[in-house]
Design a protein around this nucleic acid. Structure first.
Lengths: 220, 220
DNA sequence: CACTTAACTTAACACTGTTAAGTTCAGGAG
DNA sequence: CTCCTGAACTTAACAGTGTTAAGTTAAGTG
């Protein structure tokens, strides 16, 4: 209980003040707007002070990122209670899309920007736990759907299907974020595109696999 | 014949030398590696010389981008001769995926990075011409499929379907580019993911619309 | 020949992330 | 109490960025 713990607490406090300042600037103005000097200015320290708490800018931003991953997984809390896997899948897709639309800067950093592999894999998120790991949550739903026989025959690879479903919704979101200002394309409303994608994917999964559904003709 | 045209030609020549130097650095080392100073060094001019040919770095890079868009559209040249719209669609998706995998840096800039809207819409590409405009090519194929009754009833909005199909394949590519180094996910091979996506989308679009394929139950 | 003008260079500005060196000051040891 | 350690910070600087203002050079034109 000595002053040692107080020091520790103070350290954590300024640490999270840095994080908070960075988060706000990042969320409202985007990645480019976050500079060490501006963070420092906001919390009224010198720029170098930050380096006492974070190795470099990259690790600072990555810590923000981890936090957002957990926030995303948290969006699925309510949805987990939907019993029908198909409806759960639909709701998951929509929630994911909403997250992307409402947090475009975070989404860009999380899913649209290549990162160098993290050295010691020191994530603070428990991998595989659907409460914290959004991908694990999706896999769980897909596995349920397969187990209950809701997908057509041939659709039995949980990993592959999860990655495909994820990519489908991610495609809509990331095009929205990257190109919704692009006048080249007459964009349909975002919600319409999300629903269209989810409907088509679910319809496609409900049928037999292509090999059996296709007109029996070996192409090539 | 006069020296006026020679000057013009020389100007074009150095202009394209800048472009070429930038393109090479960009393709092999990525966006961050391209700096005005390094371009200048490569072509043995001073950094400021570039500004005599391009307003700023942004417009230089955007001109590269335009070129890549045309290159993408060119990939579809052969494919245009496939008669069956469904098979043409399949081939288009695969060619698009290959383009993304082989040109990740270009793909990132073209489809994964938000750009401020271009002032006077001075693209050098003819919009709507399938020979130059890849999106127009896709729309053409989708329209064909609808016209021949290959999609289920209800799937009749060319624009919406094109955007959905594009987003689906784009999702696979962009996750590959941004996250294939991420050990969090046990990635299936890229080709498998592309084929899975295309098969599911086509299955979802074929014949009966979602409403009839779904168990007849009004959700909500 | 004088003059304009395009094409360029040099030097600088205002930024960026990051680091080396110096300062301050609370807390523990003797 | 003094002495000293070491954490937490600041100041100054480095090497880099995109960009611009001012100066130079040389070719073409009246």
């Amino acid at each position: 209980m000595g002053p040692k713990e107080r020091r520790q607490r103070e350290r954590e406090e300024i640490r999270s003040r840095i994080l908070d300042a960075a988060r706000e600037m990042f969320a409202t103005e985007g990645y480019e707007a976050v500079t060490m000097r501006r963070i420092a200015e906001k919390i009224e320290y010198s720029p170098t002070a930050i380096y006492f708490h974070f190795r470099d800018k990259e690790t600072l931003i990555r810590e923000l990122c981890d936090c957002d991953f957990r926030m995303l997984a948290f969006q699925f809390h309510e949805i987990a209670r939907i019993d029908d896997p198909i409806e759960r899948l639909r709701a998951t897709g929509r929630a994911y899309a909403r997250f992307g639309l409402e947090n475009p800067n975070q989404y860009r950093l999380m899913f649209m920007t290549p990162h160098p592999p993290l050295d010691p894999e020191t994530h603070s998120i428990e991998r595989g736990n659907p409460e914290e790991d959004a991908y694990a949550f999706l896999k769980g739903t897909v596995a349920d759907a397969i187990a209950r026989g809701l997908f057509g025959g041939g659709h039995d690879d949980v990993e592959l299907l999860s990655q495909t479903i994820w990519a489908a919704v991610h495609g809509v979101i990331s095009l929205q974020i990257a190109k919704h200002n692009d006048e080249w394309v007459d964009w349909k409303p975002f919600e319409a595109r999300v629903d269209s994608m989810i409907d088509i994917i679910i319809a496609g999964l409900s049928r037999e696999t292509a090999a059996t559904a296709k007109p029996a003709k070996e192409t090539k």
